[in-house]
Amino acid sequence: MKKVTLSSGTTIAYEEAGNGQPIVLLHGFCGSHQYWDEVLPLLSSHGHIIAPDLRGHGASSATEGVYSMELLADELVDLLDELDLPMVNLFGHSLGGYVALAFAEKYPERLLTLGLVHSTSFPDSEAAQANRLKAVEAIKQDGINTFVEGLIPKLFVPNSSESRQELLRKAIEIGYSTSPLGAIGCSLGMRERPDRGAVLEQLQAPILLLAGERDEVIPPEKRFPVAKINVTAVTIEGVAHMGMLENPQEFAAAVGTFLERNRGE
């Protein structure tokens, strides 16, 4: 685990693996770089992987306030500058996908490829916006641990198998490391994010849209908002919102195939 303090004052922790073309993996809400533990060794042969903890998550620092997707994208740019990485393959899971879209809008020249993993370019619906405020109140009232324990099971395919229980325990433990300020800041930031369908329409770089067949967070109608020649759409069967943990082999194969097909573009 390495750490860098950015010009914003945020200290960002990150994990690295492999060599070659840079591949940045952004985790989801109440996650950390540990979401990628299973796929990291499977993807490290494809390039130099950087898996940061977003502000307020994992071992990165937190401050009070709204964490807009643009703010998190700017901090990612600062991190890449610190690491002397002018262009990257950027993959974002859920919240990480929203950050990746903000990055693509502001810094398209720095993208080799873009991947949205269990994510969407659509903004929050009115009901989802209301739920973000409920999340903020729940975190303030009951604490981050109780919030995470309620959130995480909704992200996996429901069954009573021991393997699922083990995945739940791992994801919940990761969630415990989220700062309450970080969870609140990101809830408010996700609530105000705009529709970024036009970003996908206009982006010239290769795009991967990866969805889980049984994802109840990102419904089918929001998984593949664009269809054009530079877009690859993949659905992993039998997984919900956490494909990197539920089926890391198939997840890594989809990402690896996409990277090899678009290497050097």
Rank of each mutant, 00 (worst) to 15 (best):
R164W: 11
G97I: 02
V88A: 15
E75G: 03
S60D: 11
K154S: 11
S161P: 08
L167A: 07
E105S: 02
Q141T: 15
V157E: 12
A138T: 10
S94D: 14
A183V: 12
G92R: 03
L133P: 00
R55E: 04
L95I: 05
L151M: 13
E149Q: 14
L155E: 11
R164V: 04
P158L: 05
N89C: 08
L116N: 08
F91K: 01
K154G: 08
D142W: 13
M69R: 04
D84T: 08
L114I: 07
G92E: 10
L95V: 02
K154H: 06
A62Y: 12
L85W: 01
S125K: 09
V136N: 03
G143Q: 04
V77Y: 04
I174K: 00
V66P: 06
S125Y: 12
S121V: 00
P123R: 06
L79Y: 09
P180M: 11
L101T: 03
L167H: 11
I184G: 10
A130G: 09
A171H: 11
V66E: 15
V136H: 09
I139E: 10
G58T: 00
N159T: 08
I144S: 05
P108I: 02
L76T: 03
L181D: 14
L155P: 02
A59C: 09
L133F: 03
K170R: 10
D81M: 02
G92N: 05
L101A: 07
G96K: 04
S179H: 14
L112A: 09
L155I: 07
P153W: 09
V88C: 09
V66K: 13
G65K: 11
D84W: 01
E82P: 00
R169D: 14
H93G: 00
G97T: 01
F122W: 09
D78V: 01
V99I: 14
P153Y: 06
E126Y: 02
D74E: 13
F103H: 09
L71C: 03
R169K: 15
E70T: 12
D84F: 05
F103C: 04
E149S: 09
L181C: 04
V136K: 12
H93T: 00
A62M: 01
P86H: 02
L76M: 13
F156T: 06
Q129I: 03
P180S: 10
A100K: 02
L54V: 03
P180C: 09
E126C: 00
